[in-house]
């Protein structure tokens, strides 16, 4: 078996996750390659979103959640006492399933992350806002109305705004939790193209229940089933000759 050689940005080591008594993830060993799009697929309830939320420690918002094992970010475990969670979340950004622009103006949405991180220089903020909106492909559509409410944008635009908002704080990793599932096909396509452009600067981890999207967009794919990582490989290989029967059955639509 050919060993995949790459720089791993995030590595999980025997990661298990519990919500109270219930075990959601079981001994996950995963190496997320740097500057690539990695997709995590699997049937509903298999733990994909939970896995994603472990990476920026958002799973801690769920009461009675418990982690066993480690998650290494650039080689350092993020689940230790001396890790600044706030700084971690700046470096590992997240885009959610349902676009959640804040009830503020477009400009203030993108500037939000900058302001809470202490940046006051108006010129600097302005520059970063423009750059982020350009990087997320939204600039042309909103440059004349930055002060209007973000709630007036369409679904696809709102999601790109959320991406711009995440980009503004200059993260290294972007976690995307089913970012297109609430959007129409045209917006979905725009965001898929965006992911491919973004991977040059960022490491992208995508959770999706849409296999075809994972196939189109990602470089690597991991298949999660009932909390266990069944297979992880180059996307081409997963979709043309998967090694595990379970993987083959899932992607052929025989269950899930």
């Amino acid at each position: 078996m050919k060993e995949l050689i790459y720089t791993s940005k995030i590595t999980t080591k025997d990661l298990s996750l519990f919500y109270g008594e219930k075990q959601v993830l079981e001994k996950i060993n995963l190496k997320i390659p740097q500057n690539r799009v990695t997709a995590i697929i699997g049937p509903s309830g298999c733990g994909k979103s939970s896995l994603l939320r472990c990476m920026n420690r958002l799973n801690e918002l769920i009461p009675k959640s418990k982690i066993i094992g480690q998650i290494l970010f650039d080689g350092r475990n993020i689940y230790t006492y001396d890790v600044d969670v706030v700084e971690l979340r700046r470096k590992i950004g997240m885009v959610f399933q349902k676009p959640n622009p804040f009830p503020k103006s477009i400009y203030d949405n993108v500037a939000y992350g900058l302001r809470i991180n202490g940046i006051r220089d108006k010129k600097k903020i302005s520059k970063l806002v423009e750059k982020s909106l350009k990087d997320s492909g939204l600039w042309e559509e909103v440059k004349d109305r930055l002060n209007t409410s973000a709630m007036e944008l369409s679904g696809g635009q709102q999601q790109r705004l959320c991406i711009a908002r995440a980009l503004a704080v200059e993260p290294e990793v972007i976690l995307m939790d089913e970012p297109c599932s609430a959007l129409d096909p045209a917006s979905t396509l725009k965001i898929e193209e965006l992911m491919k452009e973004l991977k040059e600067q960022y490491t992208i981890i995508l959770v999706t229940h849409n296999m075809q999207q994972a196939a189109r967009v990602s470089d690597f794919t991991g298949f999660l089933y009932l909390g266990k990582l069944i297979e992880f490989d180059d996307t081409n290989l997963i979709f043309t000759r998967p090694k595990e029967k379970l993987t083959e059955n899932y992607i052929s639509g025989r269950f899930g």
């Binding site: 075809q212 196939a215 189109r216 996307t235 081409n236 979709f239 043309t240």
Partner: peptide, 8 residues
């Protein structure tokens, strides 16, 4: 084959 499998 790759293109067919991944790009539909």
């Amino acid at each position: 084959i790759s293109l067919i499998a991944t790009q539909q």
